[in-house]
């Protein structure tokens, strides 16, 4: 490898890594929430992100709606879809062996992806909005990435504030600590599950709307986000919500750093290697957390 790596390149990579990482954090927070509250890994999490991205695409394409304003559409819409999925399906497997919930959400994901194929075709779509970059010193900032980053950070912080300060948020945290204790304290656990799934789906949809302006949209785009969100949870420690935020940033950095040396495609393999390494060396996550 005879590429010369300058400090400026490293700085650029760190910036890109953090910009990408904030989105990973946002999406992973949703997956962590469902896992924390119900001990269910939602394989359809990335699928919901894909639907969020399509919501943004169509509202931009047909209505000319500003993609960032479309968060106001995609988030409530996917909140409702999440609630519906929880109410009709996931609710029935919360206490079953994890094999059931994994397979169930996998089935839901397949059905949704192919409905999207049928409805939207597998053509690659994109939202042409805020292209280009601005320069700050030696570093280039892609406009859409910076704005997405700002949205992702704001939403994540808001989600945290919500979990820490509001009554519903506290009930959610109590339920993820111990369902029995939450029940004894008079918390309606079924309702908490419903809200958690809804909120998690809204977070994933927000991620979808935000990536819609940056990447190609197609029905199978979600799977990789399910995988990466899971990786983020593993990095941060299962059941550890702040860990999910840090894990996302870390994943963004590692991916971008590896793209200095390898092609972008292979940096996906690097993320995988990272997962395997963490599982080997620190199975409870880098930041510690509850083991499953």
């Amino acid at each position: 490898m005879n590429v010369v790596i300058t400090p400026a390149m490293v700085g650029q990579v760190v910036i890109s890594g953090l910009l990408a990482g904030a989105l990973y954090s946002l999406v992973a927070l949703g997956l962590a929430l469902i896992f924390g509250v119900m001990r269910v890994i939602n394989i359809a999490h990335g699928t919901i992100l894909m639907l969020g991205a399509y919501t943004t695409f169509w509202s931009f394409h047909i209505l000319g709606l500003n993609p960032y304003l479309s968060l106001l559409v995609s988030m409530p819409l996917m909140f409702l879809l999440g609630v519906l999925l929880q109410r009709t399906f996931v609710r029935r497997v919360v206490d079953a062996p994890e094999l059931s919930s994994l397979l169930l959400t996998f089935g839901i994901s397949i059905a949704l992806v192919n409905m999207a194929q049928l409805a939207f075709t597998s053509d690659l779509r994109s939202v042409e909005f805020l292209t280009g970059a601005f320069l700050l010193g030696p570093f280039a900032f892609s406009k859409s990435r910076v704005i997405s980053f700002a949205f992702a950070v704001t939403l994540s912080l808001f989600a945290f504030w919500f979990l820490q300060r509001t009554k519903l948020g506290k009930a959610i945290r109590a339920t993820s600590q111990s369902r029995e204790v939450a029940m004894v304290c008079g918390i309606n656990v079924q309702r908490i599950h419903l809200y958690s799934f809804g909120i998690a789906s809204a977070l994933s949809a927000a991620g979808g709307s935000l990536v819609a302006v940056m990447v190609a949209i197609q029905p199978e785009m979600g799977q990789v986000y399910t995988f990466k969100s899971f990786l983020v949870i593993v990095l941060g420690g299962a059941g550890n919500y702040p860990g999910a935020l840090l894990g996302g940033m870390l994943l963004g950095l590692v991916e971008q750093l590896s793209s200095l040396f390898l092609t972008t495609q292979v940096s996906e393999a690097v993320a995988y290697l990272l997962l395997v390494l963490v599982l080997l060396l620190r199975p409870t996550g880098l930041l510690g957390g509850r083991s499953t």
Partner: peptide
């Protein structure tokens, strides 16, 4: 299998989900 099967179900399941992508890329 050595790293992923030491842990419970979801870790293994999702590691396998990623494996396919990675192999295709490689």
């Amino acid at each position: 299998g050595y790293p992923c099967l030491r842990l419970k179900g979801p870790y293994f399941a999702i590691s396998m989900l990623g494996l396919n992508e990675v192999m295709r890329v490689l």
